[in-house]
Design a protein around this nucleic acid. Structure first.
Length: 154
DNA sequence: GCCAACGTTGGC
DNA sequence: GCCAACGTTGGC
């Protein structure tokens, strides 16, 4: 079972929004980056663990836990001209973009801020893309060691 | 709001 | 296939 981190802008979709979906989960549509797409499509499995991360906000950081709750399937918003993430080059016969659904598990008892994670940039979190400058991946892998360490900060 | 860093696009 | 221009991300 693998571990992941999903970024979301809380103004657009927050951990509270995910919690409101409850068991129904949320289709994580709109990912339009090939590296992220490959992880969604090829590597994620039902039951994988997810750190839910708030980006582009006052205190960026890990705010909750979720899990992958569906297999990967084509992101239909890419086929919809009215959708914000419409991509005319994604052919329904050969979809370019995929998604998984994620399901809320719980809030962390406190936000584990990016600044705090960076305190360990020379230690357990040295290889985490998240804390590297200029990182723009919206979905990224987390190692078992990183997962345990970050949860241990809670 | 600024701006550095990055991925993508498209001309050549 | 190179690479400059562009749009976007996201911390600060």
């Amino acid at each position: 079972m693998a571990y992941w981190l999903f970024k979301s802008e809380p103004d657009a979709f927050s951990i509270d929004d995910l919690a409101a979906r409850a068991a129904a989960g949320e289709p994580w549509d709109g990912v339009r980056n090939y590296q992220a797409r490959n992880m969604l499509r090829d590597q994620m499995r039902i039951g994988d663990s997810v750190f839910f991360y708030h980006s582009n906000c006052r205190v960026p950081g890990v705010v909750g836990l979720a899990e992958v709750s569906s297999p990967a399937y084509p992101d239909a918003t890419a086929f919809d001209p009215a959708a914000h993430y419409f991509d005319p080059k994604s052919d329904p016969e050969n979809p370019r973009w995929y998604l998984v659904e994620i399901r809320y598990l719980r809030h962390l008892t406190r936000t584990i801020a990016l600044t705090e994670l960076k305190d360990h940039a020379d230690g357990p979190l040295a290889d985490m893309p998240l804390i590297r400058r200029g990182n723009r991946l919206s979905v990224m892998p987390v190692t078992a060691q990183q997962w345990a360490f970050i949860l241990g900060l809670e």
